[in-house]
Design a protein around this nucleic acid. Structure first.
Lengths: 207, 207, 207, 207
DNA sequence: CATGAATGAGGTTTCATTCAT
DNA sequence: GATGAATGAAACCTCATTCAT
């Protein structure tokens, strides 16, 4: 019995991971259910057994991806460290997370192309981001109280800006690399980028 | 004869615009050649007559989109105004251009999903960005010479950051709006966003 | 033990009824084994445990339906009443039975679409109709002897005609209702139909 | 140009006939689009080119079948012959038409299994039956005026009864043949059936 | 320049059925 | 007796592309 349950969990999870890889690589409409089955080493029919359709599968992949990053964000505990360090930490984390999880960027791009049609049908997504925003707000307040940070910074705006400077560099690295005729993903350039981003955000945040 | 040539130009251009709309809405693999023909009000076979394949059509749409934004950027003449104003101007322009040309964002997302496969096969794209970077570099230098701007700012990094904070907010507006449970494209929020971005960049650039 | 056997009977019968409903609604090829399992509230595998295949299940449903109507026909005892009343009774019974058992009509339609492939493989079906025909023959003979009924009526032909006028009106009620733009199953129209059918048959049978 | 048009008509019509045969043989859900393509000797994709879906194809087949029988009915000109002959003629025609067009019966059975879902979405079906009913009403009136026919016969009821006795015998010939252990489609039996039906209807209609 | 007809390959999804417990 | 997991075959349908004129 226990084994059975484990098997199910395994197969379903294997499919989820295979789908994540396929969706990340080819987008929603470019992904092939056949390929997902091959990646998972399981029968294609099983995909429809566990998930109801390609779209439903995509939604679950997306929810999974969101829950993973939210979990990682929670583990940052930015409220327990020095505010300047906290800002540095937030940038570095975001950057590293996107670097380590290129599929997350891909999935978000696909979902935005779908106008968030899947996410809108999803429960318990909205709530999951607020703890992070609260944490950032707390950090900004502490920095302000210490006389370090400027006044009137909106935590959501700041979060979107930090995400944006990390995200855009990576999500558009192919076109940018082509246009600027240099490989933006070269380790040296990646290090320079992180450094620039920290300078940029701290330059704004600090008085 | 002249008229015939003009007609050809017309039909080809009509298809290009129809394709741009379709690609912007559905991405490369999600776009339908049939839909493009319907949008253009022309026979599908004509698409293959003017462009050789769906991918070639996509490339030409992409090249067209790039040439348009480059043309607009050239018209900025940032080198002829006050450096602080120039930075403001650059942010505002980028923001407005993305707002007015949502298809540009969509096309870039698609192309990055394709790992810039089309762009890499394209001549005369790479050179086109450098004037802008030179212009930014000139602005930064002027600001530095006037004792206003900080030292050591990489124009490419700055450009990518400005583009990133504008781009991400818009390209991911659907998921962000869902997650934060507010419509990020509401006029009020858009105005706040622009204001925040200017604060952010100037806060960094200014000494 | 007894309880187990009873359980078995229960489950098997539950499946049979569920299958009857599903087959009646969607026909043989339109019926879904999954749906039958859901209707029965039992595991799909059990269907294959009790019945060997979808076709075998269909056959048993069919046999069950036939045995039910034959049982009801036996209970008529037409031979014990006045011949005119007996004819009225036969028409009314046939009409009411079809009305009360729409699944019977559906199953017969499906089986005829299959060219009676299942029924031909069935034992003990053929014999079951003859008592009814014998009963009708007896009624006709009695009516003739009483000087009421016309001569030379074939009981099988009469039976098929009575069945036909009832059956067709109901089996084709959807298309007929659409074509004649009135709901043939409205109580008023049903009553008129029964009245017409009795007039028709008696008009023919009576001298 | 003319040839092109003719080709289109040909291909579409060839598909229609192939579909009619396939639907007649296997019903709506039992029919295979692949088989229709093979029967038509045309590419499967073309079926979706001309008709939009299997259901739409089924509807057009159905409409075609209805228009054919209505056309044949119009050609009867029952109003121009002796009323008794007209009734005979109507029965004989109905019987022969069903015999010659077994697909018509099959299609109607399928459509009724679908609860007339297709027909309900069809324009100009309802109107097509009324001329026949008017013609029957005219015949009945003439017979009554000549002192031959009984009073108060509803033409729709009569039509349904005539259709029913013909239809049921043929649509259910497989199960009936099995149950009565004789081939109902044997020429001798078919002749007897027609004779019985004429006796039955005239026995009712004539005073 | 322009078009309606046609196609092969492959897409998502569904099905009856069986495996393993 | 009962079940959840798994499957191969085949269903409907769609796609980019080409043919023929």
């Amino acid at each position: 019995m226990v084994k059975l349950i484990k098997q199910e969990a395994d197969s379903k999870y294997i499919i989820l991971l295979a789908a994540q890889a396929e969706f990340a690589l080819h987008g929603l409409s470019g992904a092939r259910v056949d390929s997902i089955a091959v990646r998972a080493g399981l029968n294609k029919r099983l995909i429809y057994y566990y998930f109801r359709s390609k779209d439903q599968l995509f939604l679950e992949v997306l929810e999974h991806a969101y829950s993973e990053i939210r979990r990682a964000e929670q583990a940052l505990h930015l409220d327990q460290i020095d505010p300047v360090q906290a800002v540095r930490q937030l940038i570095t984390f975001t950057w590293d997370y996107y670097l380590d999880h290129p599929e997350f960027i891909s999935l978000l791009n696909s979902e935005n192309q779908s106008q968030a049609a899947h996410l809108k049908n999803s429960k318990n997504i909205q709530a999951s981001t607020s703890p992070l925003i609260k944490m950032i707000d707390f950090v900004l307040q502490k920095g302000r109280e210490k006389g370090l940070f400027r006044d009137g910074i909106d935590p959501i705006q700041l979060y979107i800006s930090i995400a944006g400077i990390c995200y855009f560099y990576l999500s558009n690295s192919h076109t940018l690399s082509t246009i600027f005729a240099k490989n933006l993903l070269h380790p040296k350039l990646k290090a320079q980028r992180l450094s620039h981003m920290i300078d940029l955000i701290l330059g704004y945040v600090l008085l």
